[in-house]
Simulated scan of single mutants.
Amino acid sequence: MIPYGRQNINQADIEAVVNVLKSDFLTQGPVIPQFEKAVANYCGVKYTYAVNSATSGLHIACIALGLQEGDIVWTSPISFVASANCAKYCGATVDFVDIDPITYNMSVNNLREKLLKADKEGKLPKIVIPVHLAGQSCDMEPIWKLSREYGFKIIEDASHAIGGSYKSSKVGSCEFSDITIFSFHPVKIITTGEGGMVCTNNVEVANKLYRLRSHGITRDSTEMTHQPDGQWYYQQIELGYNYRMTDLQAALGMSQLNRLDEFVVKRHGIYNRYKEIFKDVSIKLPELEPYAFASLHLYIVRIENNIAGSNRKGIFEKLRANGILANIHYIPIYSQPYYQQFGYNRNDFPESENYYKEAISLPIYPDLSDSELDYIKETIIRPLGHQTLF
C-alpha cells in the first residue's frame, strides 16, 4: 500500500516523546515554549504560539484581527474547508478568489479585479487568506501591496508550507502578512500528531493569540482590571478556547524540526524523479515559480487527456485498485453542500472548475522509493483490462 503522504518517525522522535512521558509535565510544561522558539528562529518571526491544530490557529487568527459578524473574508476555493470555516466561526461572510492556472494558488490578477469591483460596491474584505497549496508560496508581495491599498489584513494559510521560502524569506516570517499558520498533521512536512503554529510580528496580535488559545485567560498583571490577589491569581478577560498543544506533541515537533530541511530536500528529489519518469507521458506536471522555494507537501498532476484509455476518474480508480492511495486536493469549497446555501456561482471560478476536473495528488513523502515511483508510473500508463501474467 502506497499512501499519498506518510509521516517519518525515527528513534530520536520516539525518545523525545518518551522523555516527556518520564518528566513532570505532559502538557503546559517547558517543551512547548522551546518548540515555539525553535520555529520562530527557523522562520525569522518574532512571536509563535503552538496550537492543537491549524484549524484552531486559523480561528483565533481571525478573532485576533477583529473579525466579527458582518465582515467579509476572501480565500482560495482550492483548499481544505478549514480555510473558509474559520471565518464562518466568527459569523463573517466568505467569498473566493479564483486560482492561477499554473500554481493553483490564489490569482493575484483575479484578486486585483475582484477588489476593484468590491471597492465600487462597498464590499471589501476585512481579511484575505491566501493558501500556499502543495507547499508553494503564493506571490505574497503584490498581495501585500494590495492590502495596503484596500485596507485588508492577511492571514497566510501555510498549512502545507513549513520549510518553504518566498523570495529571500522563510514562509512564516510574516514579511508580507499579519499572521501565518502552519499545520503539523501527520501527512504534512513535519508532524506533532495533530497540531499547528501561529506566527506574527505584531505584539498586540501576539498577546491576543496567546490568550485566545487558552480560555482568554491572562496572568499578566498589566492586562488585568485590578492588582492580582496573589501569585496564584489569573483573570479571564475575554472569551477564549482550549486550543493548546501538549508537551508530548511539542517534543515530537522539536525532534522533527531537526530534520525539516532534510525532508524538504528528499521531497525535491521525488519531484525531480517524477519529472523524469513522466517526461513522455501526457500528464500536466506541477510547475515551481522562481520566486518561491516549495516544501512540496503535495504532488498534484492534471489529467487533461485520456491516458491508456482512462480519464481522470478511471486513472484514480486504477491507482486505488492497485494499492496506490492517490487523492484529490481539493474539491472546491463553494461546491460543498454547506456552502451551496450561500449562492456561489461556479461560473465565477473557471480555473477552479477546470482544475477540479483534472487534478490528482500522487504520493510524495521522504521514504517513497524509486521502485514505488516506477510502479506508480506503470500503473497509470497500463491500458485498461491489461493483466500481468506470472
Rank of each mutant, 00 (worst) to 15 (best):
L115V: 03
G309R: 13
G253N: 09
I32C: 01
F390L: 14
A321R: 14
Q256W: 03
I189S: 04
V265G: 00
L146N: 04
H215C: 13
K188W: 00
D157P: 03
A326F: 00
E156S: 10
T180P: 05
G230H: 09
L26E: 03
L111I: 04
G135F: 11
G323Q: 12
Q336L: 15
K22I: 00
K266T: 02
F152R: 06
G57N: 07
N345R: 09
Q11A: 14
Y210L: 14
V97M: 04
T200C: 03
Y243P: 04
T48Q: 05
M254Y: 01
N327Q: 09
V131K: 03
K170Y: 11
G172L: 15
A64Y: 08
Y47F: 15
G195S: 10
V20M: 08
N306V: 00
F80G: 06
Q11T: 09
M224R: 14
Y47I: 08
E287M: 12
I181L: 08
L288Y: 02
P130G: 07
E372T: 05
E287W: 01
C43F: 04
E149W: 01
L21M: 15
Y271G: 01
E204L: 15
D229R: 13
Y49I: 15
I381W: 04
V187N: 11
L111G: 02
P363R: 07
I154G: 06
R213M: 10
G122C: 06
S147K: 05
Q28N: 14
N201D: 08
V187C: 04
N258K: 11
D119P: 00
K120F: 06
G323D: 08
D280R: 01
N109M: 02
L252G: 12
A50R: 01
N19V: 05
E358W: 01
S159Y: 13
D247S: 07
T379D: 06
T180E: 04
Q249E: 09
G91V: 08
G343D: 08
K357E: 15
E69F: 00
E204V: 07
L260D: 02
K123L: 12
E113K: 11
V265T: 07
E175H: 02
D367E: 15
I303K: 06
A308G: 03
I360V: 14
P228C: 08
M140C: 06
D98R: 06
K313C: 02
N242R: 09
D24L: 04
T93C: 03
T103W: 04
I9Q: 02
S255F: 05
A16P: 10
R346I: 02
K275S: 12
Y274E: 11
